[in-house]
Design a protein around this nucleic acid. Sequence first.
DNA 1: CTTGCCTCTGACATCCATGTGAGCTTTTAG
DNA 2: CTAAAAGCTCACATGGATGTCAGAGGCAAG
Lengths: 125, 125
Amino acid sequence: MRIGELASRTGVSVRSLRYYEEQGLLASTRSASGQRHYTDDEVERVTFIQRLYAAGLSSRTIAEVLPCVDAPGEDNSDAALERMARERDRLSAHIADLVRTRDALDELMAANRAYRAELRASLAG
Amino acid sequence: MRIGELASRTGVSVRSLRYYEEQGLLASTRSASGQRHYTDDEVERVTFIQRLYAAGLSSRTIAEVLPCVDAPGEDNSDAALERMARERDRLSAHIADLVRTRDALDELMAANRAYRAELRASLAG
DNA sequence: CTTGCCTCTGACATCCATGTGAGCTTTTAG
DNA sequence: CTAAAAGCTCACATGGATGTCAGAGGCAAG
């Protein structure tokens, strides 16, 4: 498929797909006229890349991690696997932090609602 | 306390503290000479602001939400409470997404390790 | 062939929290 | 009193993913 279709299938802009290629995250074969062509597998790859971006990884870090997806168990993915483990832990810590923040928001909202209820009660009483 | 102390207590740069004030997230009283002074409460406030930044809120959004922290139950915090509820849900969805990503990383790492173990076994056998 | 849409490269623009530096004043320590 | 450290304002820089525009070429349908 060409880049436009990959874009619409993944919900990622054409601009971003070219950027991913520039960053070494995504490969494409070129037609004689120079147009990029992709296989169906790239759809999954792009959504995974998006997932990693959403998890706070930078292009550089994603590039370090991806070899371990491409070539599982290869020697040259040793570093990738290690990096992935590190990022996994970072992500886990981040999740824990976000959960604490969500809890704080829940408490704040509960406090507000309680305050309001009390206010209404005192007005009614 | 002055801005430097607030900075070192919260781990937030002096620059950022001034920025927070500019964005209406943080107030300070000024000494005769114009220096900012803060109470101990601001420490907690700043760390909460940082927490919200980490949760992906922008300054503008944080500013919309904070009134509900300052004046619980006031009429003018109606919108703030609603906004907070929306952000809370957004955050919750984001957390769920990150958990899925973490799971994906765990699976990938497990697959890699299995692949390696298999490789070693076949070499040994 | 032509019209319209897609793609190409390259470059500049944007957002936003934060860094950084200049030039000047205030505070604090010796 | 003096020098170092800290504060002030203003303004420009940065990074990183993405938007956008320009100019040119590719390709399918009428």
